[in-house]
Amino acid sequence: MVYTSRISEKVSKKPKFSDRFLAVVKYELLWNIRKKKFLGVLIAAFAFSTLSLLLPVILSHAFGAPFEANPNFVIGRGGISSGFTLFLFALVSVMNSISGEFESGTIIPLVTKPVSRSIIFFGKVFASLLTISAAYSLLYAYMAIGGTVIYGPQNNLHLMPLCILGDLLSTFVWVSIVLALGSLSKNTILTAISAIIVFLAISISAPIVSVFSEGAWILNYVPGNGASGYVKGANQGMLPGTSVTTGTDSITSNLVRYILSPSEKVTYFKVEVGAGIKELYSEPLSTVLSRSMLVALAYITISTFTAWYAFKNAQVLE
């Protein structure tokens, strides 16, 4: 038995940054794509996409209504995903990226390698970016093909990369929040539960605050759907226009809407019991969009910094 070959190179020089970073990315990517939770959410997202493609066809058959081609089916929807889907992708991708390593003890061999904790942290974040980007790209491609087959040639498919970027920005608000919770708690269950509570609390309270109070502006500064408003167009229910939301989860839909109609304005309203809808104020869609993007970036920066700082200074006791 020979331990060292001696003719082989000795590890004496500092490894390249790219080698160490890519090693962490590979480590995390292999984990992400083998996570049952992530695969489950991906399969569910494909199932929902299939349903949204087929449901109008099924309904038109069921009610005997003529089925019409819809060239805006894919891009006109303003993104493939609801806020809940974006949150789910974020949650299953990173809920145990940090905390799981501490719980299982796998953090010990990892952080005792010649790789700084910052590289480990950002390697993990980058791997989740790649994983979610791949998942969204597949979903958009599926919708584009399915939409073209079922609803005929589609308009504005060139906006798909922008839609993916918009969805990624929205998702990474939740990714960074979940990462921060994971780094601080070092407990996956606690991370998941607290993230779900935050998401549900915002999702449930936002429409109530938005529709029944005059303080809806505050929702523009919290993650999620944001405040409700409408842009002028075809009436939708009791609204004299098309309903829009203004939060970080709505970046893609507002981005598409802005590119297609840059001069649109968002009007905010309040529902007064017995008196109907009271218009509060209006602002350009460009303001809504740029504000939601800045808020998203602020959340990503602050939460990621918190997660990184907690991870970098964490002591491995167990």
């Binding site: 500092k14 390698k113 790789v115």
Partner: peptide
């Protein structure tokens, strides 16, 4: 480490290959 634990989702070879890359 005492009673080392490694990521269960990796194969033995993959783990050593990744760690080796970290050493350059």
């Amino acid at each position: 480490p005492e009673l080392p634990r490694f990521p269960k989702h990796l194969k033995g070879y993959e783990l050593l290959d990744i760690y080796g890359k970290m050493y350059g």
